[in-house]
Nucleic acid binder design. Structure first.
Lengths: 218, 218
DNA sequence: ATGTCTTTTTATACATGTATAGAAAGTAAC
DNA sequence: GTTACTTTCTATACATGTATAAAAAGACAT
C-alpha cells in the first residue's frame, strides 16, 4: 500500500522516457537536453529530476530499452562458436546505438535489457567446461575488448565528422624514423590498415585461448 | 622568417601547460577549469583559446607529456613475451593516469609521447613473422582490449567513490532465474569474481592466438 | 604622427547540467 | 474549515566550456 499522500505527480518516468524518444527521433541524441526534454513533456527542467537521478540515468534507461530490443541470434551447439556468435551480436547491437558509448563506461554490464548476452556467453563457457570463475573472466575479457573496440570506433567516427586532419595524420607527419622505424616504415598505410574490422579476429583469438580445446572428433 | 607583426603574446602554450600542471597538482584534474587555469596563468579564459583549440587538446598535451615519461621496460628477446611485456607496461601506464580515460577515446593511438608502445608491439609482431598488415591488426586489437579494460575499470572506480549501491548490485537483485539461470546462479559472487585483474589473461590469449606459434625448441 | 594591418587579449553572452529554496497541491488529523 | 505533513513542481542561481565581437598592442608604410 504505497503512501497516497503528497502532491499528485503530473509526469512520470515513463512520460519522460517516451518524450526522450521523441526528441531523439527528431533531433538526435545531441539534441536531447534537459530543457528541451522538459518542454517536450510540458514541464520544467528540474521537475525531471524527481523522476530521474540525472541525465546519465535517463540515458541508461533509454539504452536499456534499446538493448532489450536487440536481436538474439540463433545459437549454434558448439560452445566456442556460440561465444563468437553472441559476442558479434553484442558488438553489432551496441555499435548500432552510437550514443551508447557515452554510457557504457558504466560497468562491466551493458544494461539490464542486455543481460542476455553475458548469460549466453557464460552459459557457453560453462558448457565448454570452464569453472564459474573462468567463465566470468572470459565474459569480462570479451566485454572489455568489445567496449574498447566500440569506444575507439565511435571516437574515430566523431573526429571524421568534424573534418580537418586526423590526429594520427599529424602524428605520422612528424615521425622520427630513427626512434620509431616500424611506424615510420608503415607511413601513410596506417589509415588503410586500421580501416579493417578486426573485431572478429581478436574475438576468435580470445575464445581460442580461453576456452579448453575441443576433443578431436572421433 | 616568421611574421613579426601583431600584438605580442603575453602567454604561450608552454605557460598554459605548465600552469595546468600546477592546477592539477593542487586540485586534481577535476579542478582544472578554463577559468581557474586562466587565473593561474594570469590571463582570461578566452585568451587560452588562442593557444589551444579547446580543453580536449589541452588534456591531450598533458597526456602527451605524461605518456612521454612512462617507463620503457627492458624487452625480452622472445617476440611473444615482448608483446606481453609492452602491453602490460602500456596498461599500467595509462591506468596510472586516471583522467587519461577521458581523452583516450581519441583514436587508436594513445599519444605521440607514447608511440613507443605501438612501435615495439608492431616490431615484435614483425619479428615473429607477421605481415605488416597483420602486425598492425594485432596492435589495434591489443589497444582496443586495453582501452576497454581501462575505461571500464575507471568507470567502476568512479562509481565506487560516489557510494551507494552499484548498478550491478541492483541488476543482480532483481534477476529472473528462469530467463537468466547462469547469472542468477552466480548471484552475489559477481562482485568477487569481477574483482580479479584479468588483463594479462586476455592479453596472453590474444598473443597466443594472433602470433604464429614458435617452432618447438629442438 | 597617422592610419592600416595583424595578432593577441578581453568582455560579454549563451547553452548546458544541476544545486538549492521555496511554492503548490494534494491527504489526514482535528 | 484549519492545520500539519508529504510529495511534486517551479524559479532562480551557479559553474562550466566556448562562441562572438570588440578592444588593445605592436609593426609598417606614408
Amino acid at each position: 500500500m504505497p503512501a497516497r499522500t503528497g502532491r499528485p505527480p503530473r509526469i512520470s518516468r515513463a512520460d519522460i522516457v517516451a518524450a526522450a524518444h521523441r526528441v531523439i527521433e527528431a533531433d538526435g541524441v545531441g539534441g536531447l537536453t534537459m530543457r528541451r526534454l522538459a518542454k517536450e513533456v510540458g514541464s520544467t527542467p528540474m521537475a525531471l529530476y524527481h523522476h530521474v537521478r540525472d541525465k546519465e540515468e535517463l540515458l541508461l534507461l533509454l539504452l536499456d530499452e534499446y538493448a532489450a530490443g536487440l536481436p538474439r541470434p540463433d545459437l549454434p551447439a558448439d560452445p566456442r562458436e556460440r561465444v563468437v556468435v553472441v559476442a558479434l551480436a553484442m558488438r553489432d547491437g551496441v555499435a548500432g546505438c552510437p550514443w551508447a558509448v557515452d554510457v557504457l563506461r558504466a560497468d562491466d554490464l551493458l544494461a539490464v535489457g542486455a543481460l542476455w548476452y553475458p548469460e549466453k556467453i557464460i552459459d557457453a563457457a560453462l558448457d565448454a567446461g570452464l569453472t564459474a570463475e573462468r567463465a566470468v573472466h572470459l565474459y569480462r575479457i570479451i566485454w572489455h575488448y568489445t567496449a574498447g573496440e566500440i569506444a575507439v570506433r565511435a571516437a574515430a567516427g566523431r573526429r571524421r565528422e568534424e573534418g580537418g586532419p586526423t590526429y594520427r595524420d599529424q602524428v605520422f607527419a612528424g615521425l622520427d624514423p630513427a626512434a620509431l622505424p616500424r611506424l615510420a616504415a608503415l607511413g601513410g598505410r596506417w589509415a588503410e590498415l586500421t580501416a579493417a574490422d578486426t573485431y572478429e579476429l581478436g574475438l576468435r583469438a580470445l575464445v581460442d585461448g580461453l576456452l579448453p580445446r575441443p576433443r578431436a572428433t572421433g
